[in-house]
Design a protein around this nucleic acid. Structure first.
Lengths: 193, 193
DNA sequence: GCAAACTCCAACCATGCAGTTGGAAAATCG
DNA sequence: CGATTTTCCAACTGCATGGTTGGAGTTTGC
């Protein structure tokens, strides 16, 4: 039977996403990742260097997926409510990502994973919003960066602070459809010209 | 020299706030808390039971401080932009709290610290917003709970995902005054009738 | 077909860390 | 003052965990 190193890698990453999303960089256990992937622990160190390297690899893969799944072109920037909805949907389908992102934000003090690349990507989105502002589709009362910030904040918080949400809107307000509608509406109102 | 157990307790809590805010429940080191407080580690276990107990004590104290510092009465709920600004100011002055809150959200799966008490407090705020809606000061197009959610999300994200913010608005957009103005404006637009 | 290079694993190691213990100094109570 | 209780601490323990090693099986290049 031939080696399938790519599959080994992927299985490790799949297990690692779960583990890191659940427990964060500090709480994650390398042994658990290996066991859950059915691969020997030593492979992790061979492929990814150390625990932090594994975390970076995991996060980069998820970042790539998000960027591919939820674009924001100049056309699309005209309706930020729609963008908020699409973002919300992606996070609903891939609940790991936002947790990873916020573990990263809380844990890492210095430079972010793939900072330059991500900054460039964000910059493009801000430019798209600025374009929509110029065309009068979106309010120009606030900076484009700040508007984009607002949309991200509105979408993300459900996933990042679910316990506060629960205490605020109650169990009945935790329904995904209701949340989605609220986010879209809030984003629209925020960005209306 | 007489004992001052209250001071011991307080010094431990002060050191623990720093430690937990910086490293989170999993990354925090009990030894470090004790050393930084200049108190023996064993005291922590005597006073707070275990590491988790210490975390709970820390969080409860900060929650109390926030509740006292940034109220939301029915009168005040008429201007959610103002509330957002006050909230922003408190978090700027006490940067530990939001980090603790989000470590809690990410780490703990089950019940939140002092859940019942906090839920009641949030409920009061939601009621205040609902009242403002009835008086026509705030939009009724969205539920009161969802509106409050929006304000919290807008305010908190600066502190919780600073790395993403940095990549989005650039170093020049990280200025506190600019951020505050943006939050207030966004909250106003969101909640305008 | 054989040697070098690569994949994989079980067992091992060192250390960092949450939690404990035994006892000394200080306060309290009679 | 003496007995008892409480505060405090240095030193210890046991274990979980990140990271390593030596070697056996597998593929590839010549």
């Amino acid at each position: 039977m031939p080696w399938d190193t790519e599959a080994t890698r992927r299985r490790l990453l799949d297990a690692a996403v779960e583990e890191f999303a659940e427990h964060g960089p500090a709480g994650a256990r390398v042994d658990r990742v290996a066991r859950s992937a059915g691969i020997n622990k030593e492979r992790i160190y061979q492929y990814f260097g150390d625990k932090e390297g594994l975390f970076r690899a995991v996060l980069e893969r998820e970042l790539q997926r998000l960027a591919a799944a939820v674009p924001l072109t100049a056309e699309q920037a005209g309706d930020l409510g729609d963008y908020a909805g699409r973002l919300f949907d992606h996070h609903t389908d891939h609940p790991h990502f936002l947790r990873l992102l916020h573990w990263e934000g809380l844990a890492s003090g210095g430079e972010a994973v793939a900072e330059a690349k991500r900054a460039a990507l964000q910059h493009d989105k801000v430019a798209a919003v600025a374009d929509a502002q110029r065309r009068g589709l979106v309010t120009a009362a606030i900076g484009a960066g700040q508007l984009l910030y607002g949309v991200m904040a509105l979408v993300d918080w459900w996933f990042v602070a679910p316990h506060v949400v629960r205490m605020t809107v109650g169990a009945e307000g935790m329904d995904r459809a209701t949340q989605r509608a609220a986010v879209v509406e809030l984003a629209r109102r925020m960005s209306a010209p």
